[in-house]
């Protein structure tokens, strides 16, 4: 509950305690050096969103955000299991990254200018294209967000969602009363108890929430309007360009693997491929991985560990009934467009 205060205090402590910013060291990246000496990547994820990062019955965190973290661990350390997940809520996530508690934040966080300009943090890519949606109870008979005038809306504070809703209702001259609770389970229970007429967050999060209701899913309806762009991605600290590169190209490698048809099943055969694009991706040709400061075959570790983007999607998000839509590759009508690996 009070973790954001703690992180804030820790940030205060960290900035007070370190006499000078960490000087450039061996690999040229303080973060990569820390990860290697620790032998483990520390990744910030959510406190539990199905499809993104949610612990399964064995306590293993599953989801597209968790797998993106694993892919980075595979790229840096060559092993997807060398990872520790730190669950964070919406208000303590940035301070945790700023204070160095985590190396990487993959917590369905929206890429905005304000966050890059003010927080000293940087988005390294988009692993999910999303938008703000609204959920209502089917019994209410509401069919559109425009009918929500005067409604009470449950939303988590400190999110881009809360700003998007305030803007949208103002623009459409509608009134609403917010109920703001930090803890995700608590806000969902509050909505289910009837304190709010509507629950708003990213459409994917709503789909996941609806899915978690099991047989009662029919009682909840997603309204058709998507009122904002919410590109969700991975965040790193500013000032460590090498680690930034690794995170960014980890995602691109997964997308390129999908585009080139490389999967976790055929990756070994693909190493013998004659296609130069595939050979460069897998590090059979050239030394692009080494130039970036990781193993030359980093993409092989990633693909063997978590698969290409499509495999990751099918394993994590697809079971929630979320269509691939704009999250498809560019040549299939989507927005994912990995730059050439050469």
């Amino acid at each position: 509950m009070k973790r954001h205060i703690l992180s804030g205090a820790m940030l205060l402590g960290a900035t007070l305690a370190f006499a000078a910013p960490a000087a450039a060291q061996g690999s040229g990246s303080a973060t990569i050096d820390t990860i290697k000496s620790r032998g483990m990547l520390v990744c910030g994820v959510s406190t539990g969103v199905a499809g993104f990062s949610l612990a399964d019955s064995k306590g293993v965190v599953q989801g597209i955000d968790a797998d993106t973290c694993r892919a980075v661990a595979a790229a840096v350390l060559g092993d997807v299991s060398k990872i520790r997940f730190v669950p964070l809520n919406t208000t303590n996530r940035f301070t945790a990254l700023q204070a160095g508690e985590i190396d990487l934040l993959v917590r369905s966080t929206t890429w905005t200018l304000g966050r890059e300009a003010n927080l000293g943090l940087l988005f390294a890519g988009i692993n999910f294209y999303d938008g703000t949606g609204f959920m209502v109870k089917s019994a209410s008979g509401v069919k559109s967000v425009k009918e929500l005038d005067g409604a009470t809306v449950c939303v988590q504070p400190g999110t881009s969602t809360e700003l998007a809703i305030a803007d949208y209702f103002r623009l459409n001259k509608l009134k609403f009363t917010p109920v703001l609770i930090q803890d995700q389970n608590e806000i969902q229970n509050t909505y289910l108890a009837g304190r709010c007429d509507s629950y708003s967050t990213d459409a994917s999060g709503l789909a996941a929430f609806r899915f978690q209701q099991g047989p009662k899913a029919e009682e909840q309806v997603l309204l058709p309007e998507i009122i904002s762009k919410e590109p969700l991605g991975m965040m790193v600290r500013k000032g460590d360009d090498k680690f930034f590169d690794v995170v960014r190209w980890t995602l691109f490698a997964m997308l390129q693997a999908e585009e080139s048809g490389v999967t976790s099943k055929n990756v070994d055969e693909m190493l013998k491929s004659t296609n130069p694009d595939i050979r460069r991706l897998l590090g059979a040709e050239g030394d692009l991985g080494k130039a970036m400061g990781v193993d030359n075959k980093f993409a092989v570790s990633i693909i063997k560990g978590v698969g290409n983007y499509a495999e990751m999607w099918d394993r994590t998000v697809a079971p929630l009934g979320i269509p691939r839509g704009i999250n498809n590759l560019w040549n299939k009508g989507g927005l994912h467009y990995p730059p050439p690996i050469r």
């Binding site: 954001h4 992180s7 804030g8 940030l11 919406t90 208000t91 700023q98 003010n118 504070p157 930090q182």
Partner: peptide, 13 residues
């Protein structure tokens, strides 16, 4: 805490 999260200014918050 919402303010410090939206502005990123934790110490001031």
């Amino acid at each position: 805490s919402t303010t410090l999260n939206q502005t990123g200014q934790a110490i001031e918050g």
